[in-house]
Design a protein around this nucleic acid. Structure first.
Length: 660
RNA sequence: GCGCCCGUAGCUCAAUUGGAUAGAGCAUCCGCCUUCUAAGCGGACGGUUGUGGGUUCGAUUCCCGCCGGGCGCACCA
């Protein structure tokens, strides 16, 4: 069942082609119209008028004359400078809704068609640094990333979720060093059941004792080089952290599983190879640096850049890279401005220099891929991960069985903090310079997308912290959300059993937190104020859940209903408004997927809930005067219910409730 | 200093990417429970879209200059 907007666009294109020549057909623009004028509008006439030198209204008339929409709309109207307004025929709307209600498969998708060209899309989200407990800083990536991957998956893309946990970085050096220290002094391993307390003690030592700090840095190097004692300590801390994180994921209802976790440690065996390849390909003297950065030229031969086979796991990461051949450049020798990407050693660190990046002294700003002490950084890991996601064949070394099916991603999406956008710009530019973004099978260029989001602020506009200035722990925050919801449930609906109340409180509390985050455009900062987030009035998660429960309540009373032969008769305004809006769901999903903006879904569902509430007030369903009207209105209820469930549960990851 | 992002109703945010008279929620005020869950519905109030130019049939949206705020800018992630 194709979306109406897409269908109208197609018909407009045909009409434009017939009237003014096929070369203009692609300029067909159709979008949701102002309800005052119609359901959809075509705005192509104005743009075309200029191109053709014909008055816009005349162009519009030409389009209308050649368009064939008699099966969908009332006769199109031309208005203003040349808008063409389409108003759907009531009968057409009814038949569509009836068809959705009658077909189980269509109903389960809320009438939304699957995407025609399916891609493999890696979505990288959550990715907490697991050296310490998860805090609010991780919340948005979890919620938004999960919603984005749900939306794309719902469109029938092949979504590969990736939880790129920080489990091999600098902080672990500190933790390992601390464990060694305690072990030396007391002979026992320090307990780490309270990860944060443990982290704090290590951080304290790191801060107060410079020698400790130095040793901590070298512990990272030892870890990354696969030194056994460091690895053993790391493994203990790692397990504890992972257990904690997966608890949070479950509580939040994320679709991330243990299989989706490939953290920094996973890429450890590949890092040396990555640095080696980059330094070889982008050496100043080498020929790699002249590769086009803009990504437009798709015909350049793909260099032989395969990473050395993943012949080992993190536990035996092997020797560090030794880019001795690479040029060492002093500050004065750095070309300024940087004309083409190149790698060099600067101040002892292996760096990639890219055009367009300067520091505060206008000096070329490097992307450091290996520190002077030999340790790797997150840039290295990100580069290895991109290489892995796009080009590598997924074979597990130990048994030669596929680690997973090959991905060969068509798109890679990172859902992280906006503050990291420069980092990703540089990493993506490096990948392009290496031509790792050329799809190994299709040869097409892989989309590298940073779906950035803003910070969580407190009510004062400053970063959201506890009174004592610490970052708010996710566990505590979510527990409080559920607790607050529980209080309201107990007050509003005390007759429900304690188990039901608990279940509802969980769904409402978590749903409210998620919805509050998702309903805003992700690119902006967002204020976390309990009173707003757990407000149950207006545009909130509970409001949408409530609309859903009202429908469930009707169906509980209605008993079994057969929709196969049911007829929808739209007479009341509230019925018509609701029905019309139901049919726009697929267009909204399309837009949300295109822009990776879940808030479009939220806005739509909120409007839908509002229209349903109006319908609910004005149009009695089970108490309607005649059986045909009852059945007709039940169809609207059924499809609204389906769209709400798909939208909330499948797309946003917000649970729906039978009652609340 | 350079770069990126932001500035819309008292507050928090939308506006389908250049479309028609800029929309919601909260707050305030006025109505609606003997009818499928009032976590609801209806109505009122609220705007020179920070500011000054430019581009054009048309600008909250695109370009330039100011004002104000946030973030980033070499071995953390």
């Amino acid at each position: 069942m194709i979306s109406i907007e897409a269908e109208l666009r197609r018909r407009c294109a045909l009409a434009i082609g017939r009237a003014f020549g096929a070369e203009h057909a692609s300029s067909a623009v159709v979008k949701e119209g102002d309800p005052k004028f119609g359901d959809y509008q075509c705005n192509s006439a104005m743009a075309l008028a200029k191109l053709l030198g014909i008055p816009p209204r005349q162009v519009a008339a030409g389009i209308v004359e050649h368009i064939d929409v008699e099966d969908l709309c009332q006769p199109p109207q031309i208005a203003g400078p040349g808008f063409i307004n389409f108003k759907l025929q009531t009968g057409f709307i009814s038949r569509r809704i009836e068809a959705i209600a009658a077909e189980t498969a269509a109903l389960a998708r809320g009438g939304v068609p699957e995407a025609t060209n399916r891609h493999t899309i890696v979505v990288d989200y959550a990715g907490p640094n697991i050296a310490k407990e998860m805090h609010v800083g991780h919340l948005r990536s979890c919620i938004i990333g999960d919603a984005i991957s749900r939306i794309l998956e719902f469109q029938a893309h092949r979504v590969v979720r990736q939880n790129h946990v920080g489990d091999f970085g600098t902080q672990f050096g500190m933790l390992i060093r601390y464990a060694q220290e305690v072990q030396m002094q007391t002979g026992t391993f320090p307990p780490i059941e309270d990860l944060d307390a443990y982290y704090k003690k290590a951080a304290q030592r790191d801060k107060e004792d410079p020698q400790f700090a130095v040793d901590a840095r070298s512990a990272v190097v030892a870890l990354q080089a696969g030194e056994p004692q460091a690895l053993a300590l790391w493994r203990q801390i790692h397990n504890e952290s992972r257990r904690h994180a997966s608890e949070i994921f479950q509580f939040l209802g994320l679709k991330l599983t243990a299989q989706d976790e490939r953290g920094e440690s996973f890429y450890a065996p590949r890092l040396a190879g990555v640095v080696e390849q980059i330094t070889e390909a982008l050496d100043v003297g080498g020929g790699g640096g002249d590769t086009a950065l803009d990504g437009t030229d798709n015909n350049l031969p793909l260099k032989e850049l395969a990473v050395s086979p993943p012949d080992d796991r993190a536990e035996a990461a092997g020797a560090l890279a030794s880019p001795q051949a690479l040029e060492r450049l002093s500050d004065a020798q750095l070309p300024c401005p940087v004309q083409r990407p190149f790698a060099a050693i600067s101040d002892g660190a292996v760096c990639v220099f890219l055009p367009g990046y300067v520091d505060k002294d206008k000096k070329p700003l490097p992307l450091i891929i290996q520190k002077a002490d030999g340790a790797y950084l997150y840039a290295t890991t990100d580069l290895a991960a991109l290489h892995f996601r796009i080009t590598e064949d997924k074979l597990a070394p130990e048994d030669q069985k596929p680690l997973n099916e090959n991905w060969h991603a068509d798109r890679v999406i990172y859902t992280t903090d906006a503050r990291q956008s420069q980092h990703f710009d540089m990493v993506f530019d490096t990948v392009r310079a290496m031509r790792w973004h050329v799809h190994p099978q299709t040869g097409r260029l892989v989309d590298l997308i940073h779906a950035a989001f803003g910070s969580i602020l407190g009510g004062d506009g400053k970063p959201f912290k506890t009174r004592s200035g610490e970052s708010v722990k996710l566990r505590a925050l979510l527990a409080e959300a559920v607790e607050r919801a529980a209080r309201v449930v107990a007050e509003k609906n005390p007759s429900l059993s304690p188990e039901k109340q608990r279940h509802i409180a969980q769904a409402v509390g978590i749903g409210a937190v998620k919805y509050a985050d998702l309903k805003q455009d992700r690119t902006g900062d967002y204020e976390f104020v309990w009173e707003r987030i757990l407000s149950f009035e207006g545009n909130t998660g509970p409001y949408l859940q409530y609309a859903y429960t009202r429908i469930c309540s009707i169906f509980r009373k209605a008993g079994a209903v057969d929709f196969t032969e049911a007829r929808l008769d739209l007479v009341e305004k509230a019925e018509l408004d609701l029905a019309r809006h139901l049919l726009k769901f697929s267009d909204v999903v399309e837009i949300a997927a295109r822009d990776l903006k879940p808030h479009c879904i939220c806005t739509y569902l909120y409007e839908l809930s509002g229209l349903f509430s109006a319908f609910y007030e004005n149009c009695p369903v089970l108490k309607a005067t005649d059986p045909a009207t009852v059945k007709s209105r039940l169809i609207l209820c059924r499809v609204t219910q389906a769209v709400l469930e798909v939208g909330l549960n499948d797309l946003l990851g917000i649970p729906v409730l039978e009652e609340m």
